[in-house]
Amino acid sequence: MNKVIRRIQRYQGWFGAGAAGCLLVGLYLGLIASPPDYYQGEVVRIMYIHVPLAHTSLLAYTVLFGGSVWYLWKRDPLVDNMCHAAAGLSAVFTSLALFTGMIWGKPTWNTWWTWDARLTSFTVLLLILIGYLMLRTFIDDPEREARFAAVVAIIGFVDLPIVHFSVEWWRTLHQPQSFSLRGVSISSDLLFPLIMMSIGMSLLFTYMLLVRTQMLYLTNLLHAKKGRLLGQFHLSKADS
């Protein structure tokens, strides 16, 4: 078995334990120990889950971008497995961030959905990721699949800042800037649980990435082994 996979197997537990620890402490601080916000009241506690999810989805996309560039450079199949894993996780984190954002939007803005710059760019991000994952299912040759997927991921990553800026300009044109989250300063009581949850979420992502990379690698390995067995089977049949 691959040396890297063996190393992942040995060290992944630390990330998992770290993530579980940070998240439990963060949840305790966020749900129980921290005071309610002056303006938003208790609803502000949704921030401790929503903002880390959103951060982590961007982190996951950055990992996907880095992995894609690395893959096109070195053509290592394990890196491609990592990209595939990161894309799936980024899609999960992005959709969860959108859902929690909608739940936060209802009591604070009194609407489930608004074409806010961030919401819109996260939706575009989700669509790009779904396109990426769909593309991978439509290609049979694994080498070509990896190559094309890397190209799509890189183009999408370059596109994201442009999407964000264009949507922001567009929104300031069409809607009054009534409910922007920008400018709301976060006091240190609220900041500490947020940082704790962000670190925990990033560690959780790293752990999930390691597990998912292993899963995809092992699935491919098993596939290859079965193929080889089947090949031998056919061979021996043909010979006898």
Binding site: L31, E42, L96, T100, I103
Partner: peptide, 23 residues
């Protein structure tokens, strides 16, 4: 202000349970 705790609870359930099941 009167808080609807359903929203806070809902956000945490929606955020954490799928993640945990997925993992």
């Amino acid at each position: 202000l009167v808080t609807n705790y359903g929203f806070v609870m809902g956000a945490y359930i929606v955020g954490l349970i799928p993640l945990a099941l997925f993992l």
